[in-house]
Amino acid sequence: MEFEIWYLVVGIAILLNIVVSIFLARRDDLETFQKGAQIFIVWLIPFFAAIGLCLFHRSQDAPTKKHKNFGEGPRDGIAGGSSGD
């Protein structure tokens, strides 16, 4: 019974490392050395590095902006606004 749990833990760690390695390799904002170093860290420290680096890079992504309907842009005084004088 004990060995079966270890197989499950190791299997989850390998799957998590593969997913995070692919995620890091596909990022455009990292240089080649940074990608290689972070993937190495993920495989060196399985659970903590994989989860930590994935969460870190997810938090660094710019949030997507919602599109505004036509005519709901910023009002900068072009049409009928004051000139500021």
Rank of each mutant, 00 (worst) to 15 (best):
G52D: 00
G81L: 05
L15A: 14
A13I: 06
I12F: 13
G52C: 08
S83T: 14
V19A: 15
A13L: 09
L24K: 01
W43A: 02
D76G: 12
Y7H: 10
F70V: 15
R26A: 10
V20Y: 00
D28K: 12
S59I: 11
N69E: 07
F47V: 15
L44C: 13
R26N: 03
G71V: 05
L24Y: 00
L15F: 14
H67L: 13
I39K: 01
G81K: 09
F56M: 09
Q38V: 00
V10F: 13
L55Q: 02
A37Y: 05
T64L: 11
I39L: 01
F47P: 05
K68H: 10
G80H: 04
K35R: 12
G36D: 03
D85H: 08
V9M: 08
L15G: 15
K35F: 05
I51P: 13
F23Y: 15
G73M: 04
P74V: 06
A62P: 13
W6V: 13
V19W: 10
P74Y: 04
L44A: 14
G80Y: 09
G52A: 09
L44R: 02
M1F: 11
D85Q: 13
V20W: 02
I22Q: 06
F70I: 15
F48L: 11
D61Q: 11
V20D: 03
D61S: 10
R26P: 05
T64A: 11
K35V: 00
S83I: 15
S59T: 14
G84V: 11
F3E: 14
L24H: 00
I45V: 14
G81V: 05
S83M: 15
G71D: 03
R58F: 14
I18Y: 07
F40Y: 05
T64S: 13
E31R: 07
S82T: 13
G80Q: 04
R58A: 03
I14C: 11
L24M: 10
A13R: 00
W43E: 00
K68F: 07
V42L: 04
V20P: 01
L15V: 15
I22K: 09
D85V: 15
C54Q: 06
D61K: 13
F3S: 07
L16R: 07
R27A: 02
F70S: 14
W43K: 02
P46L: 04
F40G: 10
R26E: 04
S59P: 10
D85N: 14
F47Y: 11
W43Y: 09
F23L: 02
K68A: 15
G81P: 11
I14D: 03
F48A: 07
W6P: 03
L8V: 14
D61R: 12
G36Y: 02
R58L: 15
F33G: 03
N17I: 01
P74W: 07
K68L: 13
Q34V: 03
G52N: 02
G80A: 11
M1Y: 03
P46Y: 01
E2V: 09
N69I: 14
K68R: 13
L24F: 02
G77N: 09
A13P: 08
F33A: 06
Q38S: 01
Q60D: 08
S83K: 12
H67W: 07
T32C: 09
L8R: 10
I18W: 03
F48I: 13
I5S: 05
F56T: 05
F48H: 04
E31T: 14
I45K: 01
K66M: 08
S21E: 05
K65F: 08
V9D: 02
F48R: 00
F70K: 11
Q38N: 11
S83P: 14
Y7T: 10
